[in-house]
C-alpha cells in the first residue's frame, strides 16, 4: 500500500501544494456547480437573470453613449459594439465581486476543513465564466439579428477569453486574500466595479481617446482585452498593438503575483478570517 507522508513544519510551505491542487481538482467544479445550482433557487425568472442583466446594461449604454453622446461606431451597429465590450467587462466585474468575497462568505468552511483554498476563489471565477458563455450565445443571436458576419480573426476569441479569465482570476485572488484580513475591500470592490465601467471602453471605442493619452489609457488591462474582443468579433476598430501588449503583460503580472500572494497568506486564513 502506497502511503502518503505529510510533513508539516513551522515556517515552511508544504512541498505538496501542487499535488494537493491536483488531488482536489474536482472540487473546483463542485464549488462552481454548487454556486450555479444555488444562484437562482427561489427566484421567479431563474436563469434568465444572466440574460436580463447584460441586455438592460446594453440598452442603457447604447442610449447614453450612442444616442446622447453620439460616439462614433465605425460602421458597426451600436448595440453590438456595446455588447461586445460588455461581455468581457461583465465577466471581469462579476468575477471580482463574487470571487473577491468568496473566502469571507465561506469562512466557516475555511476554518473547519482542509482543502486548497484556491478552489473556492477559482471556482467563483469559473461560475462567472459560465454566465459569460451564456451571454456569448446571446451575442451570436444578436449578430444574426443584425446580419453581421464575424471576420476571420474570430478564431482569436478563445485567446481573449483565456486572457480575461486570467485577468479576473489574478485580481480576484488578490482581493479575496486581502479581504480575509481587510474587510475594507468589501467597500472598495463595488466602487472599482462601478468606476471601471466608465474608464474602460465598454460604452465606447478606445479610439475616441486622444492619441497622446492612448498609452496611458492602456495601463488598464481591460482596455486591451475589450479592444481585442471587439477586434476579433466585429473586426471593426483595428487593434492597437501596444495596448494589447500591455494588457498581456498586466495579466501575466496580476496572475503570477495573485497566486504568489494568495499562497503566501493562505496558511493564515483560518486564523484571522
Amino acid at each position: 500500500m502506497a502511503t502518503t507522508q505529510i510533513i508539516i513544519e513551522a515556517g515552511r510551505t508544504e512541498g505538496q501544494y501542487w499535488r494537493d491542487l491536483w488531488r482536489y481538482r474536482e472540487l473546483f467544479l463542485f464549488f462552481a456547480w454548487r454556486d450555479l445550482l444555488v444562484r437562482y433557487k427561489q427566484t421567479a425568472v431563474g436563469i434568465s437573470w444572466s440574460l436580463i442583466r447584460p441586455l438592460l446594461t446594453m440598452a442603457v449604454l447604447t442610449v447614453v453613449f450612442g444616442k446622447l453622446g453620439k460616439m462614433p461606431a465605425g460602421g458597426v451597429p451600436y448595440p453590438l459594439l456595446v455588447f461586445c465590450g460588455m461581455l468581457p467587462w461583465l465577466f471581469f466585474s462579476t468575477a471580482l465581486t463574487e470571487a473577491g468575497s468568496s473566502l469571507v462568505s465561506n469562512a466557516n468552511m475555511v476554518s473547519k476543513v482542509y482543502f486548497p483554498r484556491l478552489a473556492i476563489t477559482a471556482s467563483s471565477v469559473i461560475t462567472s465564466l459560465v454566465d459569460f458563455l451564456i451571454s456569448c450565445a446571446f451575442l451570436v443571436a444578436l449578430m444574426i439579428w443584425f446580419r453581421y458576419a464575424p471576420p476571420i480573426q474570430v478564431l482569436f476569441v478563445p485567446f481573449f477569453v483565456a486572457l480575461v479569465f486570467a485577468a479576473s482570476l489574478g485580481v480576484s485572488l488578490w482581493v479575496a486574500a486581502l479581504m480575509v484580513k481587510y474587510r475594507d475591500f468589501r467597500f472598495i470592490v463595488p466602487f472599482v466595479v462601478q468606476f471601471g465601467l466608465y474608464i474602460s471602453p465598454v460604452g465606447f471605442q478606445s479610439s475616441v481617446v486622444p492619441e497622446r493619452f492612448r498609452l496611458l489609457y492602456a495601463m488598464n488591462p481591460m482596455v486591451g482585452i475589450i479592444d481585442g474582443f471587439r477586434w476579433s468579433i466585429l473586426g471593426s476598430p483595428r487593434i492597437y498593438v501596444p495596448s494589447l501588449a500591455i494588457a498581456i503583460a498586466d495579466v501575466v503580472i496580476l496572475l503570477a503575483s495573485g497566486i504568489w500572494y494568495f499562497r503566501m497568506t493562505e496558511r493564515t486564513f483560518a486564523d484571522i478570517i
Binding site: 502518503t4 507522508q5 510533513i7 508539516i8 513544519e9 513551522a10 476554518s111 476543513v113 496558511r267 483560518a270
Partner: peptide, 13 residues
C-alpha cells in the same frame, strides 16, 4: 492542516 504551526514539526504517515 487547517492552520499552520508557529513552531515544531508534525509528520503524518
Amino acid at each position: 492542516r487547517i492552520t499552520t504551526p508557529s513552531e515544531g514539526r508534525i509528520q503524518i504517515n
